[in-house]
Nucleic acid binder design. Structure first.
Length: 268
DNA sequence: ATACCGACCTGTCAGC
DNA sequence: TGCTGACAGGTCGGTA
């Protein structure tokens, strides 16, 4: 579900609501839970810890924690359908709730994930994510990332070891804005095209963050609110509809195993 | 080293 | 109404 703008929105909301709060106790479901660290270790790390900060790294939510034993981090990846919600304890627990952290303030932090593609882990400190931050990468570094890559540019944008945080929606939207076909080999982009893609990507991500992310089917932020960037999508989810620039019907194909939307006339 | 493709899960929706 | 299959915002591991 969530890509960079959605995770950014969620992390900001969580920071606003739980920073400074303390985790009193943790409940973890016991059947095939989406854990990268052992459940006992997660519980031991979270219980008693204070949440200093909640922030985004790539598509991960990072909780910076401090406790008597020292600093640690709780790292959450929401996968396709994960949600991290702040709820009053009397609120009914959604099905597919895998973790509940009870806070000193009386509220609960709940991790819900029907498809269980999400991942939870804890570590001592220093999580940096797999790749480079798309909002911070310079044009020079951006060009360097794609140099010599034979993969389609869309696949390269989705590769988290290169840039982390870009997913299917924002890959399609930024390629549309840059006027580049998703199947073009990454190495075939001219300097000018790379520059267009670099700024298109950063613009799209910033606009999406300003809109609170894209709610296509069920994304909601930490407050349970939907985003509204889906109203500004030009390519993603618009197969068969007229291009907003030239009226040519948007095409849908499969690239790098993912549904891919583009304008056959505007994108070269 | 790089790229592709199926697997991992559940829910939803279109078509029969 | 109910079944089947395709598809969904993501990643991983095996294979070529």
């Amino acid at each position: 579900m969530p890509e960079l703008p959605e995770v950014e929105t969620i992390a900001r909301g969580l920071h606003k609501r739980v920073a400074g709060d303390r985790i009193e106790s943790v409940w973890i479901g016991n059947k095939r839970e989406p854990l990268k660290s052992p459940a006992a270790k997660i519980a031991a790390t979270l219980e008693g810890a204070r949440v200093d900060q909640v922030r985004r790294v790539g598509k991960h939510i990072v909780f910076d924690l401090s406790a008597r034993k020292g600093a640690s981090q709780w790292i959450v990846h929401l996968g396709m359908t994960g949600r991290m919600l702040v709820a009053a304890p009397e609120t009914e627990t959604a099905s597919h709730t895998h973790l509940v952290a009870r806070l000193e303030s009386g509220r609960e932090l709940r991790f819900v994930d029907p498809r269980r593609f999400g991942r939870l882990e804890v570590q001592s400190a220093g999580f940096t994510g797999p790749g480079t931050e798309p909002l911070q990468v310079s044009l020079e570094d951006f060009v360097q990332l794609f140099k010599g890559r034979n993969a389609p540019i869309k696949g390269a944008l989705l590769n988290q070891k290169l840039l982390h945080g870009v997913g299917n929606i924002y890959a399609d939207e930024s390629l549309f804005r840059a006027g580049i076909r998703p199947r073009r080999r990454a190495s075939s982009l001219t300097r000018q095209e790379s520059a267009r893609l670099h700024s298109a990507l950063q613009e799209v991500l910033k606009e999406a963050i300003a809109a609170g992310g894209s709610s296509v089917s069920d994304y909601v932020d930490a407050e349970g609110e939907e985003g509204f960037f889906q109203l500004q999508h030009c390519a993603y989810g618009r197969a068969g509809e007229p291009c907003l620039v030239c009226k040519t019907p948007i095409k849908k194909i499969v690239v790098a195993g993912r549904g891919t939307h583009y304008c056959p006339k505007c994108q070269k």
